[in-house]
């Protein structure tokens, strides 16, 4: 992944989301050690304090846990926690934006549902 400096999300959030995706993709298993703040700083040419902030964000959400002096490890239910968080957070927000845009274009609810169904069908056939 290359960090997107034009993204309006802070870098530490981008780092946290990238680690989450790595966990979702199965690159890190439960109780496996993730990158240290210094490794992340080296990989992305970012300040180690920024990298640490990203890691701490995930520790606060109990997706990672700290072992003193050893680093950050993937929590047992990390995958479920990430899926749950993205469903209730990211997806919900996207849907809100979708509904708002549909209202602006005066698209009826049934029409919107049809569009979603069509998109899902297309995705499934690929």
């Amino acid at each position: 992944m290359i960090l997107n400096p034009d993204d309006t999300k802070p870098i530490y959030v981008q780092i946290a989301e990238w680690i989450e995706t790595e966990i979702l993709n199965g690159h890190f298993q439960s109780d496996e050690k993730v990158y240290s703040q210094y490794q992340l700083a080296e990989m992305f040419t970012i300040n180690p304090a920024t990298a640490a902030k990203g890691l701490n964000l995930l520790a606060d959400e109990q997706i990672l846990y700290k072992k003193r002096g050893l680093g950050m490890f993937v929590a047992t239910n990390a995958k479920e926690a990430i899926v749950h968080k993205r469903r209730s957070g990211t997806l919900k927000q996207l849907i809100q934006e979708l509904v708002l845009e549909a209202e602006r274009l005066s698209i009826k609810e049934s029409e919107l549902l049809e569009m979603i169904k069509a998109a899902r069908k297309k995705e499934g056939s690929q």
Binding site: L3, P5, I11, F44, T45, I46, N47, A49, T50
Partner: peptide, 9 residues
Amino acid sequence: LNEIEDILE
């Protein structure tokens, strides 16, 4: 700033 912000604390 946009050039250096990533490496700053």
